[in-house]
Nucleic acid binder design. Structure first.
Length: 284
DNA sequence: CAGGGCGTCCGGCTGC
DNA sequence: TGCAGCCGGACGCCCT
């Protein structure tokens, strides 16, 4: 499940692998993944185009191609790999970018949830999702006053709002659980009732957890690997995610698992005091 | 109008 | 051994 650190790790490997490369042609096997423009236009526009840079915004990969930007979202299980032209094709290969040096950048996606949008450069900032994204965790503007401004009056659980990409960009289910545990905040807490100090700890832990995971090459949970095919190591630093039934690494209490906002949620009920309204509470 | 909750997409995997 | 149900990021829809 690639979140910001995993997408950043993929970006770095793709930037190295695609350095100075030009797309010779593109073969789209699963048309549904191409959202804009239509597949014929998508393929025609990409023919013979150089890859100038690979950027990232939140969980989106942006390939700078001169007049156009290719916006790629991996969603749950999308992944890229570099292959020689004759290499046997692995299952769930949906898009193949043939490069002029003979290699192939292949996009695979078991869940078929990933998306591609090829946009004129001047349209990128207005592109629906990209245009509404909140600050990145490492932005200076992502601080406690900003969060208080965005969360005041909001009654939804803090977890749901940290997953809202317009509040802060790039967090997913794994990192939100980790951030809230380290900040000592129960995920069911109504966002608008958090104190200034609570918001400060959330901001601090968000920045720390994301930066540390990027240093570790992301978390390899389920299928994630970088563009080089190498796994990350941050999964060994996870303190609550996937650890239900095991002792809290801080206090020893058994980690509980429930649902918040429809998402599987891991919590230590000693380190993260449940509010009266909590759906995940002691005694079960 | 906007907040909030839920259904949808998909198929490998879990558990009965 | 067979198979129904689970799971989730972004987004659409619906209700309040």
């Amino acid at each position: 499940m690639p979140e910001l650190p995993e997408v950043e790790t993929v970006r770095r490997s793709l930037a190295a692998l695609l350095q100075g490369q030009t797309i010779a042609r593109v073969d789209v096997r699963l048309h549904r993944l191409i959202r804009t423009p239509d597949v014929a236009m998508f393929v025609a526009t990409l023919r013979g185009v150089p890859v100038l840079a690979v950027r990232r915004r939140a969980k989106y990969l942006l390939f700078d191609l001169g007049d156009h930007v290719l916006v790629s979202h991996l969603r749950m299980e999308g992944r890229y790999g570099m292959y020689a032209a004759g290499d046997p094709e692995e299952a769930h290969t949906h898009v193949v970018f043939s490069l002029t040096d003979g290699r192939e950048l292949r996009y695979r996606d078991v869940r078929q949830f990933g998306t591609f949008d090829l946009l004129p450069v001047e349209a990128v900032n207005d592109f629906s999702a990209l245009g509404r994204l909140g600050p990145e965790p490492d932005d200076e503007g992502f601080d406690a006053p900003y969060l208080r401004d965005r969360l005041s009056e909001r009654t939804a659980p803090i977890k749901s709002l940290l997953l809202d990409q317009t509040v802060v960009a790039g967090l997913g289910n794994i990192y939100v659980d980790e951030i809230l545990h380290r900040a000592g905040i129960h995920p069911d807490r109504p966002a608008g009732r958090l104190k200034r100090a609570d918001l400060g700890r959330i901001v601090e832990q968000t920045k720390q957890v994301i930066a540390e995971s990027i240093r570790q090459g992301g978390s390899s949970i389920k299928s994630y690997v970088s563009g080089h095919g190498t796994p990350g190591a941050f999964q060994f630093s996870l303190r609550v995610y996937g650890r239900q039934g095991k002792p809290c690494l801080t206090c020893g209490r058994e980690i509980a698992k429930g649902r918040v906002g429809g998402r599987g949620t891991h919590v230590c009920l000693s380190c993260q005091k449940p509010p009266r309204t909590a759906t995940i509470r002691p005694g079960r």
